[in-house]
Amino acid sequence: MTPEAGGVDAVIDAVTAVFLVLGALMSLTATIGLLRFPDLMSRMHAATKPQVLGLFLLLAAIGLQMRQWWVWPVLVVAWIFQLLTVPVSAHMVGRAGYRTKHLHPELLSVDELEAVVRRSAAEQEGTGTGPASTAGSAEDPELDDVLGLGEAGDGALRGAAGQNLDDRGDGRGDQGEGKG
């Protein structure tokens, strides 16, 4: 920033300063959310703010200050890579959090995965020879857990259903059994 700028430069410097302070405040917002929110899912919601909007503001500030045309494509590339990779990690963390039950079911307003898991479990019980043949109980449970996390689509659903059947002993399993 130029110390004593006038005209357009002063306006650009002011806009840059606002962008920088807002971008830094996004990080503080995420931290407050991390510290105060009750479970993993809501903390994930807070954590995405500096990663997308905060980075956008800071990159825009860099572009405003540098005034070189070749900087803008690099900044756009950086932001697009962030937009592409943040959902990937959020998806993996969210799914692992659901499967290891790091959530409060009473705090969820919609749990779309629960119906899918229950239906998949019911199908498996109908087609199989009984609960003993379902995934997870026949093999090493830890191995099944690790494998199920990495597979997409049907495999993941089967893995989740296996975990649901596995943990029938606790509260959530009992609830699913009663409703199904």
């Binding site: 971008g23 990080s27 993993l40 994930m44 954590a47 905060g54 980075l55 405003l64 200050q65 963390v93």
Partner: peptide, 30 residues
């Protein structure tokens, strides 16, 4: 939980990136 720590370290990485970006914007270097 482990996932909370992973999430928090992701945020920490974002804060480091924000510090790099602010340094570049204020001091006008790339």
């Amino acid at each position: 939980s482990l996932l909370d720590r992973v999430l928090a370290s992701d945020v920490l990485l974002g804060i480091v990136g924000a510090a790099l970006a602010i340094d570049m914007a204020v001091n006008r270097h790339l």
